[in-house]
Design a protein around this nucleic acid. Structure first.
Lengths: 164, 164
DNA sequence: GAGAGATCGTTGCATTTGCAACAAAAGTCA
DNA sequence: TGACTTTTGTTGCAAATGCAACGATCTCTC
């Protein structure tokens, strides 16, 4: 056992600290102004991009488990930001979509979130951002190859499909 | 409101996903083999480096809130991995330290954690690692300048104190 | 088309979490 | 010294979490 193990230099810990700090900063805005949780925020964000989706779609895309999505959607429906109808076709699926109020809420909330991201990004130059993306993808790839790691729910489209 | 907002490209979200995935992979080992939670693991790791510390020290160093540290220590004491005595001197402080059993547990658990980290690091070359560190520090710096962000509990020693 | 198996979404439940309140001890200042 | 404030660690409590179980629906196979 090394007598010099420093948590502050341990990559997983450093990632966790940074990620948590950024998340909390973001949540500060939409939580205070609209009482949204992280799960609810992610659901709404996903709904911005698609017409109507199932719980499973949201779970995969937003990296949340089923109960979390289910309850987030329930609260959002209660709040009138989202509407839910039973799917035509497959009777198990639920078609979840934004209401006008939901879209209005996102219009109020998104700019602040994008502003936080913009400030983060503005601290990096083009090379750094590119390297960061590559590094994050490489770290994911290590976990992809690790049977003990949870699989990714959403693998990004490969830019270079022609590699080994 | 942009009609093209992709969560998958949103930096805070990408950080959260990667960080959570790495954390879970790590926790897999020490949780399954020794029933340790993340908080307990962090407490033990911190105790590896110091003789005896207070709850506050651990809170600052391991980025956990007071109740979490307090309860983690209570469980670890219950399990015999840690001992707690009232501080000589300041009567409020508690002196928390590892027992032999605690050291033995860490000797069993640390290698797996370091192995996970080593595999992650081995996917990066020297430049990438250095850039990653610099980028993470820059992102922290953005939050340091943001009054709405939670302050860092533990600011790293500056290598270059002579920059604007 | 009947039955076995898989999938979808919800709910139950024990545990954990975050935050505030609290008692005990130290520090402050007259 | 004595009142007031601050700090330390623990506890209470409402809410969130993770996981398994469940009913409902679909699919596949014979």
């Amino acid at each position: 056992m090394p007598d010099t193990f420093d948590l502050m230099e341990f990559l997983p810990y450093r990632l966790a600290i940074l990620s948590e700090r950024v998340s909390r900063r973001l949540a500060t805005d939409y939580e205070r102004t609209h009482g949204l949780t992280v799960a609810e925020w992610r659901v709404l964000v996903h709904l911005l991009r698609v017409e109507a989706v199932s719980v499973r779609d949201i779970r995969d895309y937003a990296n949340l488990d089923k109960p979390k999505v289910s309850r987030a959607v329930a609260r959002l429906e209660e709040a009138g930001l989202v509407k839910k109808r039973r799917g035509s076709g497959d009777g198990r699926l639920v078609a979840i979509s934004l209401t006008d109020a939901g879209r209005a809420t996102m219009a109020e909330v998104l700019p602040a979130a994008q502003d936080v991201e913009a400030r983060l990004l503005s601290a990096l130059n083009a090379t750094e951002l590119k390297t960061l993306s590559r590094v994050m993808e490489k770290l994911h790839a290590v976990l992809d190859a690790d049977p003990a790691a949870r699989p990714r729910t959403h693998v990004p489209a490969t830019e270079n499909p022609d590699q080994d």
